[in-house]
Design a binder for these strands. Structure first.
Lengths: 227, 227
DNA sequence: CATCAAACTCGACAAAAGTCAAGGAATGCG
DNA sequence: CGCATTCCTTGACTTTTGTCGAGTTTGATG
């Protein structure tokens, strides 16, 4: 598989291009730029003016806001098949967040001009972009609600329920308690305290790389409460 | 001025229709529904499936998340010339927030079908929608940062700077300290404390319906800090 | 103009979250 | 395999924010 095939594969995994015909996808693939990042490397910083659209082929990243004293708020985790920096493409503004690789990562960049031309040629693409942005709005509103109106324990319960499959949450290496704490708007110590509390009440079992939900209904009650 | 002229006037005040020709605006105006709300009335509740696009002709509203114990987080205030419920139009989902009138309000509703048809006929509209949604994403990211990484006092300082004109912030009747506290993610008592603190340091002067910035640089330092 | 409800003020106290320090466990690297 | 680094755990203490109760001021209404 050469670079172009690799790019085509990455692009076709993404809803943005679902309705774009194969010949055009191939042409766009020829205009993309492949980039690799190691664990911990910054893709771009908040405040810069990065305008390309990014596609994740491999690896996980985090979009974060940082405070002067070193705290982080993870806005979201970004994995394979996902697109990021739509804001940078469509709005003339600085990037609202910093994006950092959580593990070795392969990205494909599509230049802004290419995307904007594509938007003109494929009105259906606009529909997809609108829907993805609307999804981002909804996710951020939920986060605002969490941060403002709910306790850490309640946020954790909700997160465990949302992210679990068959009542289990696998934690890849990069998904440390520190990252999870940053996602929930707190610090590792407080997260650990909340995990302990839920475990003590037999709602979950905590292992290093896995959290098991023992009492789904009990956990849902915690998630639904503001306490 | 009859109802149709009134609707046309409301629509032409909105960026969504800036590039739509006058005849079509007039036609859309003919399909809009006029609604009035009194102070405190709910336009729609979080969890409902309201799909129309709303235009504000007159009056102010707030979009809020509410907690079971009665706390509110104001997501944003919506005033004349603004559009809301784009999410409801473009995504098949329940409304993420409750919208309530803060004072007597006149709205115009555009049915979903009309908007979606317009989107097909006017690709430039998609660009506008995308840009407005992107703006909402940016605003919500800033709110997440406030709630997670900054103290109440720092949030207040930032808010005062952003919302003031010529170093003054007028507070209309509906903009009580309670509403402002809900916007900043806290309770009126804590907001009052923060106002007092800034006033004690001669950074601002607080009157019932106006806040004057006395030391812009000092306030900016507070806004830029995480303390 | 008088009354009443809403808004604001303020201090005491409580709760939630953050900081710090120390020790133990797990993982990665040479 | 041993060592160093990272991650996790835990309790004590501190800070920030929220709750409560009482009193004062303002603005709307009849």
């Amino acid at each position: 598989m050469d670079a172009s095939d690799e790019a085509i594969q990455a692009l076709t995994a993404v809803p943005y291009f679902a309705d774009v015909d194969a010949a055009l996808v191939a042409m766009i693939a020829g205009q993309t730029i492949r980039q690799q990042y190691d664990t911990g490397q910054v893709v771009f910083l908040e405040g810069e003016q990065e305008v390309a659209l990014y596609i994740v082929q491999q690896g996980w990243l985090k979009a974060v806001k940082m405070s002067p004293d070193g705290r982080e708020q993870v806005l979201h985790f970004i994995g394979p098949g996902e697109v990021f920096n739509a804001i940078g493409v469509f709005v003339e503004s600085t990037n609202p967040a910093t994006v950092i690789a959580l593990e070795p990562t392969i990205l494909w960049l599509i230049p802004q001009k290419v995307i904007l031309k594509l938007l003109d040629d494929y009105p259906e693409l606009a529909r997809v972009v609108i829907q993805r942005l609307a999804g981002r709005v909804q996710q951020l509103i939920a986060m605002v609600e969490d941060l403002s109106l709910r306790t850490i324990e309640s946020r954790l319960a909700r997160y465990l329920i949302d992210q679990s499959t068959a009542e289990q949450l696998q934690r890849p290496r990069w998904a440390t308690q520190a990252e999870l704490a940053n996602r929930l708007g707190t610090v590792p110590d407080v997260l650990n305290r909340a995990l302990r509390s839920l475990a003590k009440e037999q709602l979950i079992r905590v292992e290093r790389h896995q959290i098991q939900i023992l009492d789904y209904n009990g956990l849902e009650a915690k998630a639904g409460s503001d306490k």
